[in-house]
Simulated scan of single mutants.
Amino acid sequence: MIALHALQYSRATRILWLLADLGQPCTRIDYDRTDAFRAPEELSKVHPLGKSPVIEDNGEMIAESATILRYLVAKFDDDSHTPPRGTVDYWRHEALFDYVEASFAEVALRAIMPAFRGKPVPDDAKAALDIHLNYIAHALGDGPLLFGDTVTLADIQISYIIALLERVGLLAEHPTVAAYWAVLQEQPGYISATRTAGPMVPTA
């Protein structure tokens, strides 16, 4: 059985969400955050960078949530979380999936971190974030998810950053993305993951 090293309030929820969708169990090893909201020292014994999520499967240790999600759909021969291969939508999906951590996360965190500490968001960080949120709103089209009614890996991947933005009030000026977040929270896999492991981000 797959073992998941899951840090509290982290990207590990993405993995639990997909596993729930696939109907696959896992052994979960939980790690609480420190008072400074950092990963505990124990995680550095799992991964040299103290990362989470990390999975162990058949003696292999796999990190990076995007890699883990791709690994799981390959392992379980799942084709329900991406558009059909060879289509325009398939490659648009792959771009959006990689966009989350390659481009969006860094920009979002520049705004999230000061807001999380109760400080004003710098104007340049807010302006950069607005550009990305408008891009996501455009990508949603008629929605309600990135590719219609079916949740994809890209939806699961983007959920954590969207959750953090909502938590610190940075979706207030972006109703389309706020509505998207509401729909993500209605997905059965999200509900299952957060019921078993707690909320994706701090609630207060």
Rank of each mutant, 00 (worst) to 15 (best):
F76D: 05
M61A: 08
D32G: 12
F116L: 15
S103T: 15
S65C: 01
A12N: 04
G86V: 08
R14A: 00
I62T: 08
P83Q: 11
Y71F: 11
A66L: 09
D30C: 13
A20F: 07
A12I: 01
D21Q: 15
R14S: 01
D57Q: 10
A39L: 03
S44E: 03
G118D: 09
P120D: 07
D98A: 09
L7H: 11
G86F: 02
E42N: 11
L49C: 03
P48E: 07
L19G: 11
E101P: 02
A111W: 13
R38T: 07
T67Q: 05
K75S: 03
G118W: 12
E94K: 13
E42C: 01
E42S: 15
R38Q: 14
R11P: 06
S52R: 05
T27H: 09
S80E: 09
R110A: 08
N58H: 11
M61I: 06
V46D: 02
S65M: 04
A108I: 04
K119R: 15
F116E: 14
G50E: 10
S10G: 06
A102E: 09
L43K: 15
I68K: 11
L49M: 14
R117W: 02
D78N: 13
A108P: 12
L72Y: 03
H5F: 04
P120N: 02
R70A: 14
V121D: 10
V46R: 12
Y9A: 01
A12K: 01
G23Q: 06
L16F: 10
D89A: 14
H47L: 02
K119C: 01
V46M: 06
V100Y: 08
R117K: 03
P84G: 10
A115L: 01
V100L: 05
F97C: 09
A3Y: 00
K75C: 01
E42I: 00
H93D: 12
I68C: 13
E101F: 05
V54K: 07
K45N: 11
A74Q: 15
A102K: 10
H81W: 14
A74Y: 02
E106D: 09
Y99M: 09
N58S: 12
G118K: 14
T82Q: 10
V88K: 14
S103N: 14
F116C: 00
R11Y: 04
Y99F: 14
